[in-house]
């Protein structure tokens, strides 16, 4: 029955239990739709045959509805609709709440490719490897415009937005290779932004992951990094990182917590900094900006006043970008943009 309906409706394979559940509702809804539409059509036809016009001067009686008619007209469709909703909405809720033990994969979309990063491990371009029978949670973000992650075989779709994370999850139980489409229009390459989800047997997947970790990233993200500088639509943070490198800040500052000529930038924002004159200062945006413009005004305890001033050398918007970058360097969470999406851990290569 399932197989027959699936083929009749041209639905693709079902690679997860969720897909099978959704399809069952699909059959119900579409069957009702066809019956209702045909029913109305046949009624019209029957009335037409039964009540054809017999003479041009024919008159007709005035027919008014009884209450029962109106109740039926409203009640029948409404009960169907609400029933569909009552089945469909819990399925949607299920899709929105990933199980706790899910494996996380970070998805970055950009014109016009997909990048998948595994926690502490390899990256993949356009091909997502997942184990069969284990829940996988995807944390998705975009580098430029909106894309949408769409795997028909999983009946799964989630928009991928720039500047924030969205999430979705699945538990594919049938090993195989499934098509991945970009479903939100994103420009010239939209229809070429295709990919593949490879569902592997769990032990195969473990072997693949271990192998990939050992040999470094199988697909080094060369493809993702090229053109990065040309991209005008990088977020402020990314611009800040690039600018900081260009202005040579990294000659003296690190971003990984180690001490260099200058203090590290990691976790600097909102930190209470001890100064050489014994006072303390809260490292807010104002202080960060001041440190670039007038480094000698406040010297951090334990460092030499060797930092040159950048007053007049860095235009204000770029200063803002660098400040933004410094603010993003947090060990706990990279909260760049306001997000009502899931709480997530930063991507670390």
């Amino acid at each position: 029955m399932n197989e027959l309906m699936r083929r009749m409706l041209f639905l693709p394979e079902q690679a997860s239990q969720y897909a099978r559940d959704v399809d069952r509702l699909h059959y119900f809804v579409i069957t009702t739709t066809m019956i209702a539409a045909t029913g109305v059509g046949l009624t019209v036809l029957w009335f037409f045959i039964r009540f054809r016009r017999r003479s041009e001067a024919q008159t007709t009686p005035r027919v008014e509805p009884k209450t029962i008619h109106e109740v039926l007209f409203i009640g029948v469709p409404l009960s169907f609709f609400l029933l569909w909703f009552a089945i469909g909405f819990p399925q949607y809720v299920r899709l929105q709440t990933p199980p706790r033990d899910a494996m996380d994969v970070y998805v970055q979309a950009k014109k016009w490719m997909w990048k998948f990063s595994y926690a502490g491990g390899p990256n993949g371009i356009d091909v997502l490897h997942v184990p069969a029978g284990r829940p996988v949670r995807l944390l998705l973000t975009s580098r430029d415009v909106i894309h949408s992650f769409f795997v028909p075989a999983l009946r799964l779709k989630q928009d991928v937005l720039p500047g924030r994370y969205t999430q979705t999850w699945f538990n594919a139980d049938k090993p195989g290779r499934y098509e991945l489409f970009c479903a939100e229009y994103c420009g010239m390459g939209h229809s070429a932004m295709l990919g593949e989800v490879v569902v592997m047997r769990p032990e195969e997947f473990d072997a693949w992951l271990a192998d990939a970790r050992r040999s470094g990233s199988p697909a080094v993200d060369a493809a993702m990094t090229e053109e990065e500088h040309a991209d005008p639509r990088q977020s402020l943070t990314q611009q800040g990182e690039r600018l900081a490198a260009e202005y040579g800040c990294f000659k003296c500052h690190t971003v990984d917590g180690t001490r260099h000529i200058g203090p590290t930038w990691l976790d600097l924002y909102r930190k209470t900094e001890k100064l050489s004159d014994g006072k303390t200062v809260l490292a807010d945006e104002g202080y960060l900006t001041e440190s670039m413009m007038d480094p000698r005004a406040k010297i951090v305890a334990g460092y030499q006043p060797v930092m040159p001033t950048y007053q007049g050398k860095i235009p204000a918007p770029e200063v803002a970008a660098i400040v933004e970058f410094i603010k993003s360097l947090r060990t706990d969470a990279v909260k760049v943009e306001p997000s009502k999406g899931p709480v997530y851990a930063p991507i670390r290569k």
């Binding site: 945006e285 104002g286 900006t289 918007p317 200063v319 803002a320 400040v323 933004e324 603010k327 943009e337």
Partner: peptide, 17 residues
Amino acid sequence: EGQLPGKFYTFAEVQGP
């Protein structure tokens, strides 16, 4: 003061997204 919209914004006193 550079308190202008979007990319023209250069007002240093108030910063941040």
